[in-house]
Simulated assay, not measured.
Amino acid sequence: MRTPQVVVVMGVAGTGKTTIGALLATRLGVPYAEGDDFHASANIAKMTAGVPLDDDDRWPWLDAIGAWAHGRAGLGGVVSCSALKRAYRDRLRAAAPDVVFVHLAGDRAVVEDRMSHRQGHFMPTALLDSQFATLQPLGADEAGVVVDVSGGPEEIAGRAAEALTALSGPTV
């Protein structure tokens, strides 16, 4: 039997990382961690004000998520994290080498529509352009899968679970 892996659900804001991540964790029978909970309050204040984070803002956040993933090695888990740049994913892999990424990808118009209907989230739609500009899709050499965000949450989570199973075998 394979050791359960830690899955990082990644993508731009509004793709459903939190919703899909929680559903995927339930399907896989592992804990879920909300990536936004690892942000310093200064980061949240910046984003709430419509100011994109820079790499200096992100490094401590990525290190905290990486530490969580490292602590879940061999136990499995799902964590949401935008992980938009290859360098960010490399940083996560440095902390937890066996992480696998699920890149939630979708058309900008679909993502913007979803963001405009969200309530109670600090990320404004004004930052969506910066998110898409920063996004570096998974490289062929990166462990992970790309899942389209069209359809409902259960459908998307199901596609993610199937893609992970195809990637890794029966136990993710």
Rank of each mutant, 00 (worst) to 15 (best):
V6S: 03
V7D: 00
T18M: 05
T19N: 05
I20K: 01
A22K: 13
L23Y: 11
L24N: 10
A25Y: 01
T26S: 13
R27V: 11
L28F: 02
L28I: 12
P31W: 01
Y32D: 11
A33V: 13
A33Q: 13
E34H: 04
E34T: 10
E34R: 06
E34Y: 07
G35P: 10
G35M: 03
G35K: 00
D36H: 02
A40I: 14
A40L: 11
A40G: 12
S41P: 15
A42S: 12
K46G: 00
M47G: 05
T48M: 07
T48L: 06
T48P: 11
A49K: 03
G50D: 12
V51E: 15
P52E: 07
L53F: 10
L53A: 03
D56M: 00
D57V: 08
D57C: 02
D57Y: 10
W59P: 15
L62T: 10
D63I: 04
W68C: 01
H70M: 12
H70R: 14
R72K: 13
R72I: 12
G74C: 03
G76W: 01
G77L: 01
V79M: 09
K85R: 13
K85V: 07
K85H: 01
R86H: 14
A87R: 15
Y88M: 02
Y88G: 01
D90E: 14
D90P: 09
R91T: 14
L92M: 09
L92T: 09
A95D: 12
A95W: 13
P97Y: 04
D98I: 03
V100Y: 06
V100F: 06
F101N: 01
F101C: 09
V102P: 03
V102K: 00
H103Q: 12
L104E: 02
G106D: 00
R108S: 09
V110I: 14
V111P: 07
V111N: 03
R114W: 10
R114P: 09
R118N: 12
R118V: 15
Q119R: 14
G120K: 09
H121E: 08
F122I: 10
F122S: 04
P124Q: 00
P124R: 00
P124C: 03
P124S: 07
T125Q: 09
L128Q: 06
L128N: 08
D129L: 02
S130R: 07
Q131C: 04
F132C: 02
A133F: 11
P137S: 00
L138C: 01
A140H: 13
A140P: 15
D141H: 11
D141S: 04
G144V: 05
V147P: 00
G151N: 00
G151Y: 10
G152H: 14
G152C: 07
E154Q: 12
E155M: 06
E155Y: 12
E155H: 13
I156V: 14
I156A: 02
A157K: 08
A160N: 09
A161K: 09
E162Y: 11
E162M: 11
E162Q: 14
A163H: 05
L164G: 02
A166K: 15
G169T: 06
G169E: 07
P170F: 01
T171M: 00
V172D: 08
